[in-house]
Design a binder for these strands. Structure first.
Lengths: 244, 244
DNA sequence: CTAGATTTGTTCGTATGTATC
DNA sequence: TGATACATACGAACAAATCTA
């Protein structure tokens, strides 16, 4: 049995404190000096505790007068990164990703029907235009990345935050799977063309608020994409650890 | 633009190091002293960097000879905890949880048909027995918790690690939603009885390897549970931050 | 079982960078 | 511009844990 580190005890106490006092974004914890006195321990210990909460995305350190540890809502990017990191040591297959994507992307598509505003439509259209441009230039790398962004934009409008997180994570995994691959140009060209067509059809159905059409289009799109992915090399060992 | 902290730079470099050298569980990073020399910075800085990777679940610190930072695979519990933490600042509804649970639990149930061994069956049966016992004693608190464990056991046998993680997370959220509530005894009794019946039916269908029966039983079970949950008080603000 | 060696855990003191007024 | 308040970083020391002889 290992003794619990002092810094971990402090970190846990700070978490409970935030929860109990119901502290939220823009609120601040006391500065290091005060925390040192409160917990009766040294600066290094306090700093390690705060570092833990910082890594969890719960706060940022602010220097200067009226500075100190400022609480913030953990960002989705932080959690998605943690999830990617977890799967670094699991051996994943693209079929695992698509088993879920086939279901969840359709849920999202249905969910956002009637909830998209003009700004969403504009961005989706701009995304498609960028894809077309990349396709013309045979720029496979950016093409693949921008295509995934289409789905990122879609799930932004989703009213279920859990579903939103899961789809964002799956999209991140798709990016990890698809980039930096040197497959044949022919396959990539066909892949890119399908994505453009499917996204155009989806956007049209979304503008019509045609629930059935949206579901059908997305479902078919996912099946096609899965087919393309399976035709590419299945083995991969991506660097899921590093940021950016 | 804020300057990037030295400890964060070191942490990021260590992550890349682990990925590049393809280090895995049981491997070790150099001890603090060596890292201090390598990066030319002080002990406190190195410790903060290691603390970051420790929080991410990527390593544990070991004292003593042949000690040092030992790499480990990030545990599922660590990631689930991070996900719970993220939703502390989102306003979640139980309907968000069940919108996904209705779909994913059915996927799991179908997935594990024919993949459960005798050990699984024994544990599922033992779980049901514990539920019956808790029901007899009107022990609502443990009853609710053990019921969720039934689903935790099920998804253990799932061969899709992403689906496994997502269901484990949803189960954790269900626990957060359901425990420490003081609803009427009548509702809890009916709830508990339904769960016992549904789990018995599920276990039987699983033993028969009856895919259709399993899917149908789980689907119906989820709809019933959602109904029970909606009859309870919907407002909640759980302590998603603290561990344990 | 004890004693010493190794490595992390924690403290104190000090200096420097940075944001606010 | 300068003064203040805060985080960031360094260095030296000691305490505690853990392995080995």
């Amino acid at each position: 049995m290992r003794r619990i580190k002092l810094s971990d005890q402090v970190a846990e106490d700070l978490r409970r404190w935030i929860a109990r006092e119901n502290l939220g974004p823009k609120d601040r914890l006391p500065p290091e000096k005060v925390l040192m006195q409160h917990y009766g321990c040294s600066k290094g210990t306090i700093r390690e505790a705060l570092k833990a909460l910082e890594v969890e995305g719960l706060l940022v350190m602010q220097a200067g007068p009226n500075g100190g540890p400022e609480i913030q809502a953990t960002s989705m990017e932080t959690v998605v990164q943690q999830m990617r990191q977890y799967f670094h040591f699991q051996n994943l297959d693209f079929k695992d990703v698509y088993e879920l994507r086939k279901t969840l992307e359709v849920m999202v598509a249905e969910n956002v029907v009637g909830r998209l505003n003009e700004s969403h439509f504009d961005r989706l259209q701009a995304n498609i235009d960028t894809c077309i441009e990349a396709s013309r230039n045979d720029d496979r790398e950016t093409g693949r990345i921008v295509e995934v962004e289409f789905h990122d934009i879609l799930c932004e409008a989703c009213d279920n935050p859990i579903l939103l997180l899961m789809c964002r994570f799956l999209n991140a995994m798709v990016r990890d799977l698809v980039i930096r691959r040197t497959d044949s140009l022919r396959e990539h060209t066909a892949f890119g063309q399908h994505n453009i067509d499917a996204h155009i059809e989806l956007l049209a159905a979304l503008k019509r608020r045609d629930s059935d059409g949206v579901r059908q289009a997305m479902s078919q799109h996912m099946h096609c994409v899965e087919g393309f992915m399976s035709s590419l090399d299945a083995t991969f060992h991506m660097d899921l650890l590093s940021r950016g």
